[in-house]
Write a protein that binds this DNA or RNA. Structure first.
Lengths: 354, 354
DNA sequence: TTGAAAGCGGTACCAT
DNA sequence: ATGGTACCGCTTTCAA
């Protein structure tokens, strides 16, 4: 690998100064066209690749945004599919989860705007070091709520704009792309109580972040509206199928089956679907099931899963725009949270039940 | 946004020289532990974020790899799903295509190795400028075959290692992660001719890159083995559903239906499935259909699509390792191409036909 | 174990 | 329209 040519090499080759080379690339119109050609030619001949490091150092901006992601897919074995699943030849993976779809939105928006995207992450460890590393590489950072300690993000946000993807403003220092989780979960549960007249409903999920708290709140509200005083949520975590399965088994072994199981995420709902199928319990005839997020797999699950869809790609795109606003010194317009949308399919009891 | 603290600020705060600060971060063991603490403390207090630009410039390495991707999903309207598709509430997207799954492999491998990943791309235009920009930001570049002109890649590869993902070594200067497309397509077609005894088979697809040439070759070989002299491929491009649909309509209007349609990609096969469904032509009873790639959607398509699966995540991971080898000065071991695997499902006529 | 100082490859201001 | 030249923040000898 030959040494990379620098502005100096190009300047020498073209017989001009390095300042002119720089101009030629950054403000072509300010350079005499014959000079411009000479420089561009020389650069081409030499295979000149501008160093982003040098440029970034000099300008104080890198021209790249960062996304700190993490892997929801904790269980390596996690693999849910429809009933017409293949019998062989497929590996454990899978379909895009929430993070994947949001990431796609970020990516597309960056590309559309000519920005480079730095994607960082770690499987489980060392989040602080890794996110700081990424922060040092970019002009602005997008981060999923829950991936990194709030204190760390706040510290970073003192130096570069940070956008958090969540459902509540956790800190005035951060910009937040919000999604209304409560309303959708409430409507989802109301659909069960009103449209289907169900009452004995169990909720599966935790309350780690604001999203989950909101979902739980929405559920509780709906139950209250239906005149039910609801006890508590069954412990269950997306990405840890065992937690979901254990709660399910416990629920089922407690005498009378519930009429419905409301899950805090699609990922958990799919596990429930899978387990119920194993046990020969029919969905929705015996038990209705609902999810949350609207990931792709819910469309093709069997039965198709009733859920609430988050506008995932849009979340990503909005996050990029927020960052750009911040970099341009525009105020955050803490507007309405992005809406989620209830998606009625079959697992709640709607539509033909085969 | 306050100015970012630098090594100078940290040095002053800790009462040491900038060299010591640098050492504290890069070679902690070479610094007296009390000094180390002082520096780390100061850095923490100040919210110090090391500048990757400065570091990259000084070291001559950025510590990041680049992936130049592009969007196969040309048709905005492209949206194929199983028959138990939802009736509402879903947007046009989608499921991970070949590129998405490979990208995931790249991403995971980078994370596992503590590398940052720069993802670049453009929707349609300006590929040369964009890929060069990315190249200037990273230590090595991964590129999908077909995304960028070979000459450009060769030029870049004179300065940084470049790995191309394809199915043939197009240039000795590039490292290539190869996948054997020919064999799998041949076996797929042989399955149709031998197991199902089919003869009148039409091939849909182009021959833009080596992958596609190989697939076509594999198909032709199989037909030859079956004693059939095959005419030609019907024009069809993944991402341009109209091309596929037009060819299909033409094929169908030409009197006797073919017994099978072999497509060069899953994306096209899904379009074929969709169109045949519209026309009331049953798959596989009336016409068998096969795809290629093994993207997720083939599992849940209706009927489940018989196809050949590329080890997509592995392709991405291997590419990263290749790059690392190159950066460490290790020779390329141009080994065996990664194997593809035939996946027999229902669209060829195997299994229950509902 | 720590410090001084010379780069790394650009940018941008100030001259010419 | 171009050239000269201080930086930008960090790494890395070489000395102390």
């Amino acid at each position: 690998m030959a040494k990379r040519p620098t502005v100096y090499d190009v300047a020498a080759e073209a017989g001009v100064s390095i300042a002119t080379v720089s101009f030629a690339f950054t403000q072509p119109h300010r350079v005499k066209s014959s000079t411009l050609d000479a420089v561009l030619d020389a650069a081409d001949r030499l295979g000149y690749i501008p160093s982003a490091s040098a440029r970034g150092l000099a300008k104080g901006r890198t021209g790249a945004l960062g996304l700190y992601a993490y892997d929801y897919l904790v269980d390596a074995s996690f693999d849910v599919r429809g009933d017409n699943a293949p019998s062989s030849g497929d590996d454990g993976r899978l379909f895009p989860l929430y993070v994947d779809e949001v990431q796609r939105g970020v990516q597309l928006e960056c590309w559309d705007r000519g920005l480079a995207l730095m994607i960082g992450g770690a499987r489980t460890t060392d989040h602080v070091r890794r996110v700081t590393d990424i922060a040092g590489r970019v002009d602005g950072l997008i981060c999923f709520a829950g991936a990194v300690d709030l204190a760390v993000l706040e510290s970073l946000s003192e130096r570069i704009p940070v956008v958090e993807l969540g459902s509540a403003v956790r800190s005035a220092q951060l910009r937040t792309v919000m999604v209304d989780n409560r309303t959708a979960m409430r409507e989802l549960a109301l659909h069960l109580t009103r449209h289907h007249g169900l009452r004995r409903i169990e909720y599966f999920g935790g309350a780690g972040t604001a999203e989950f708290t909101q979902r739980w709140d929405g559920f509780v509200e709906a139950m209250h509206d239906a005149g039910e005083t609801h006890r508590a949520a069954w412990p269950s975590r997306p990405g840890y199928a065992a937690t979901t399965r254990e709660s399910l088994d416990e629920v089922l072994s407690a005498g009378q089956h519930p009429e419905a199981i409301v899950c805090s995420t699609d990922q958990e709902a799919l596990v429930v679907l899978d387990r119920l199928h194993e046990l020969g319990i029919r969905v929705p005839q015996d038990i209705a099931v609902t999810g949350f997020d609207g990931i792709l797999a819910t469309q093709t699950a069997s039965p198709a899963l009733t859920t609430a869809r988050q506008p995932m790609e849009e979340i990503g795109r909005v996050a990029v725009r927020e960052l750009l606003d911040a970099l341009d010194g525009r105020q955050a317009d803490h507007g309405e949270p992005l809406p989620t949308q209830v998606v009625i399919r079959r697992s709640c009891g709607c539509g033909p039940t085969d």
